[in-house]
């Protein structure tokens, strides 16, 4: 969503719209996390009046989808791919292989055992 997006490019890795979108989602989630957690706490707290809890529920559902943690997906920093991204290197499997064979990943070698 454009209203959340940074006016100036604030990323240093491979850039495409999916990467920018994911980055925006991360920032928005970070910004709204306390609010979400507070609402979640109110909803789950049985000692609070039912009305308050229902209101909190409504508020939580009405928050923008970018504020949800489930919207965040790890993407490849070298090619922006969303699948097969190795968490350790934040790279998709093929980029990982290329970089590993080029010796750009410290300590990673071809294994044989």
């Amino acid at each position: 969503m454009a209203q959340f997006r940074a006016k100036k490019l604030d990323l240093g890795c491979f850039i495409n719209i999916k990467v920018i979108r994911d980055h925006t989602k991360r920032k928005v989630f970070e910004q709204h996390e306390p609010e979400r957690q507070a609402l979640r706490y109110i909803i789950r707290n049985t000692s609070l009046p039912q009305r308050t809890r229902a209101q909190a529920q409504l508020q939580l559902t009405q928050m923008h989808c970018y504020t949800r943690p489930t919207q965040i997906r790890n993407r490849c920093i070298m090619g922006g791919r969303g699948r097969g991204v190795l968490r350790d290197f934040r790279m998709a499997r093929f980029q990982f292989r290329m970089n590993a064979l080029a010796g750009k990943l410290p300590g990673v070698q071809k294994a044989s055992w």
Partner: peptide, 24 residues
């Protein structure tokens, strides 16, 4: 020892894979 197994190709061909490891 951390090990990763990835397909050699960038697309399909799952039968041909390669192993990498990092020993700390």
């Amino acid at each position: 020892v951390e090990r990763w197994t990835v397909p050699r190709s960038n697309f399909v061909h799952k039968k041909s894979q390669e192993n990498f490891e990092r020993r700390t």
